[in-house]
Simulated scan of single mutants.
Amino acid sequence: MAGIKKTNVMRLLEQHGVDYEEHHYFGDDVANGVDVAQKMGNDPNQQFKTLVTEGKSKEHYVFVVPVNSELDLKKAAKAVGEKSIGMIKEKELLPLTGYRHGGCSPIGMKKDFKTTVHQSATAFDTIIFSAGKVGVSVEIAPHDLEKLIDVQFADVAKA
């Protein structure tokens, strides 16, 4: 698309030889990830959101779950070997990751965090998630994430 600048996520994907497709939406008439997926014409089961948490140990973890589901904090803690975890405060997101709320990507954060992607991602040839900017997403094969970040797949969403 003319006039759309590449994000750092797109540049990193290209540097690692990962094929991707861009998805865009414009406007502010969205309330959540499901609205974004529908606006882009995507399946909400295939479009994922990136959530950042802090464990009891004070370590940070990233979880990537479908936009139409919620992170199960107990399952998430178990997946990363923590006694408990909680969501970070929104004001902590930008300084910690370099991303703003609504544009957080599991790729290209300021620091590498252990990342867990909900296991449902493996049922799709490709998944869609933020490209690091609100309104811009990328679509890649789930296992291509392994080329860029420390990732595991586990059941971390509420049933």
Results as ranks from 00 to 15, higher is better:
Ala2Gly: 15
Lys6Ala: 11
Val9Phe: 01
Val9Lys: 01
His16Asn: 15
Gly17Lys: 09
His24Gln: 14
Tyr25Gly: 04
Gly27Ile: 02
Val30Ala: 08
Asn32Gly: 02
Val36Ile: 09
Val36Arg: 01
Ala37Val: 05
Gln38Leu: 15
Gln38Tyr: 14
Lys39Ile: 05
Lys39Met: 05
Gly41Leu: 14
Pro44Ser: 08
Pro44Gln: 11
Gln47Cys: 15
Gln47Asp: 10
Phe48Gly: 02
Lys56His: 13
Ser57Pro: 09
Glu59Ala: 12
Tyr61His: 15
Val62Glu: 08
Val62Gly: 09
Val64Asn: 08
Val65Asn: 02
Val65Lys: 04
Pro66Arg: 03
Asn68Val: 01
Glu70Asn: 09
Glu70Gly: 01
Glu70Leu: 02
Leu71Ile: 04
Leu71Ala: 03
Leu73His: 06
Lys78Arg: 14
Gly81Tyr: 01
Ser84Lys: 15
Glu90Arg: 13
Leu94Ser: 14
Pro95Leu: 05
Pro95Glu: 00
Pro95Gly: 03
Thr97Phe: 00
Gly98Ile: 02
Arg100Gln: 15
Gly103Val: 00
Cys104Gln: 11
Cys104Ile: 10
Ile107Met: 06
Gly108Glu: 04
Lys110Gly: 00
Phe113Asp: 07
Phe113Trp: 03
Lys114Val: 04
Lys114Ile: 07
His118Tyr: 10
Ser120Ile: 11
Thr122Pro: 01
Thr122Glu: 15
Phe124Ile: 13
Ile127Leu: 11
Ile127Trp: 08
Phe129Gln: 00
Ser130Leu: 07
Gly132Cys: 00
Val134Asp: 09
Gly135Leu: 03
Ser137Asp: 15
Ser137Val: 00
Ala141Asp: 11
Lys147Ala: 13
Leu148Asp: 08
Gln152Cys: 11
Gln152Leu: 09
Gln152Asn: 14
Phe153Trp: 04
Phe153Ala: 05
Ala159Lys: 15
Ala159Ile: 13
